[in-house]
Design a protein around this nucleic acid. Structure first.
Lengths: 251, 251
DNA sequence: CAATGGCGTAGTGTCGGACGCTAGGGGAGG
DNA sequence: CCTCCCCTAGCGTCCGACACTACGCCATTG
């Protein structure tokens, strides 16, 4: 079953699409191990070089990965991969603060609401812990930024809506990083942030979804006011790089 | 400046990261043309084979593309690329209807609201045209599905919030495709859909953002009722493949 | 008998070279 | 000056090779 390239369709592209199709169709399931490159190559009628180009694409799409250098297996795309790709794209297309904010005004309140409805005790405690750290970090900008991100991400995780998680993560990250540009112009921001977060945590503890949602909304609204004060309502989101999560330090 | 691979860091990976960094940093701007593979290879101290693996990754990330086979240039990731990647991922992680719906309940009303606030005359007319087609297609399931997707996508485009567009597209697509499973159980659905759409269009024409938003919400709420009737509230979203736009038929 | 350590192999990452094909530029001809 | 044709650079693909290293196998040892 030699795969001869039709005009315009490159072999590596064809191979990648074929394997992708097999995965989406379910012929290959996440966790399945794939044969070696040599065999895959002959199987599709291409050389290893060509096959490897296809693999790089699949890898980049998160459809396969190597848990160990000798093992190549099918996987479901990791959230942080999608997050960084989407974040990069938004940064490159120079989305504005307003665009980010308008959407965040939806996602964070929903995240808070769902969390209030579904949080388990342990999760609430973990949120409280995070919040305590935030309070303790008052004044330390970098740390505050980091903890804020974590807080919102965990909030979303607690709700358990993965679609929401996927959609909001890159957006929230870009927006929150803008915080760094706002804070200097709005010093009262730290306090208001802490206040909002603690109301959210309290509401979740009380299982009061409406209150949680309301405070999340206020929190993000505040953000917008800060941006106005700082005069970057329609400023573009910068700092494209380093979007991936803290990420196991490795390099 | 030979790039010798540090332990664990592969040459192709390093090259891809390096070029990516240059793009994000702004050293390379969208539209810039890159040198030939041979030169790029020597520049990074790797063979063409290796360099090509890096290129496949960048290409897959949408950071570079070939407008013509001879020209390789930097580009900002295309929306439909991100859409299909995200859609695939969600399908593979078997997100439920509920998850999709919860988020869509936010995105579509916002899209309608913004559209009402910002639509230009021509855009309103184009929406009306699309709606007219939908009305005419009553009964034709496939066509209805397609037009519905188009309607919502155009609605979002009109608002001009690219972040919203990027976030909602894969989600809406997956959800709306579920329509195919709902419709048979809820025949009155076609009519209600048409009703909702026409209210939305009318509200936008009248520049009534609240009404537009309200009807969009009702529209998506309806969708959920349909899902309940069809008994697939927590059914997983299937049909992972064919998420990309109509797409030139090829294979 | 189980645990430990060494050995061999298969398989990956990278290299170098080669060849056909085609897009696109440059020169010849109108 | 414009048009057409030829030539070449560069891409897609193939082939063959080599170093390095997980990993399984086997023998040794307590």
């Amino acid at each position: 079953m030699i795969a001869r390239a039709q005009s315009g369709v490159y072999a590596y592209h064809h191979v990648a699409e074929e394997i992708t199709a097999q995965i989406l169709r379910g012929d290959l399931k996440p966790g399945d191990q794939l044969p070696g490159e040599a065999e895959l190559g002959t199987r599709f009628g291409v050389t290893r070089s060509t096959l490897r180009e296809a693999l790089r694409q699949l890898e980049s799409d998160g459809l396969v990965h190597r848990p160990s250098p000798r093992r190549l297996e099918v996987s479901v795309p990791q959230a942080d991969l999608l997050t960084s790709r989407a974040g990069r794209a938004m940064a490159l297309m120079k989305v504005t603060f307003r665009e980010l904010w308008e959407v965040t005004m939806l996602t964070e309140p929903l995240a808070a609401r769902i969390a209030a409805e579904r949080a388990a005790m342990a999760e609430i405690e973990s949120l409280q812990g995070l919040h305590a750290e935030l309070v303790a970090a008052e004044g330390d900008m970098a740390r505050t930024l980091d903890l804020d991100e974590q807080f919102h991400t965990r909030l979303a995780d607690i709700g358990g809506n993965r679609v929401l998680g996927l959609a909001r993560e890159p957006i929230a990250l870009l927006l929150f990083r803008g915080f760094a540009r706002i804070a200097p112009h709005a010093p009262q921001f730290f306090r208001r942030q802490i206040e909002a977060h603690s109301h959210i945590v309290a509401a979740i503890r009380d299982r009061d979804a409406n209150r949680a949602e309301k405070w999340a909304r206020k929190h993000i609204e505040d953000f917008w006011r800060g941006a106005q004060i700082a005069g970057l309502e329609d400023a573009i989101a910068r700092n494209p790089g380093a979007l991936s999560p803290p990420a196991a330090a490795m390099d």
